[in-house]
């Protein structure tokens, strides 16, 4: 029998795509959380890393760190159930895209952040799309 017609095979495919996505997503969320924590705890060093004047920007940096931590926390349900909580994940991907464009406009140290975010978002989007297709093709 053609294996794409088999429930066990298509479910295994979907599961493996799910793990691929979850692994990367976990990494990305951990990075987000670490960055957020660093921004909260060490706003001055974070500001200098981004090429900003430490004095005036620390408040903003801390707010950004808090937001990053919050956003990472809000995406946790999507990590554990990426298909069932698809709307949270899609919103997360969109949010990353917006953040990436914003960072590009800000330039300086933010450009590097934009590149990293952009690359990770793209990889996440590709894996998520593959997961979505595999899930769909494991349905009747």
């Amino acid at each position: 029998m053609n294996k794409t017609l088999s429930l066990a095979w298509t479910r295994a495919q979907a599961l493996s795509r799910r793990w691929d996505f979850q692994r990367l997503f976990l990494l990305v969320l951990t990075l987000d959380a670490l960055c957020g924590a660093a921004a909260l705890a060490e706003p001055a060093s974070t500001a200098s890393l981004l090429g900003l004047e430490a004095g005036s920007a620390t408040g903003w940096i801390q707010a950004l760190g808090g937001l990053l931590l919050l956003a990472a926390g809000l995406q946790l349900p999507g990590l554990s159930d990426p298909v069932g909580r698809r709307w949270g994940n899609l919103a997360g991907l969109l949010g990353r895209l917006v953040l990436c464009v914003l960072c590009l406009f800000l330039g300086g140290g933010f450009a590097l952040l934009a590149l990293v975010q952009g690359g990770l978002s793209l990889a996440l989007a590709v894996l998520y799309f593959q997961l979505f297709r595999a899930e769909l093709m494991s349905c009747p």
Binding site: M1, L5, S6, L7, A8, T10, S138, C139, P140
Partner: peptide
């Protein structure tokens, strides 16, 4: 049991 769709063989 293993037919993904019962209209498959």
């Amino acid at each position: 049991a293993d037919a993904r769709n019962v209209f498959f063989p």
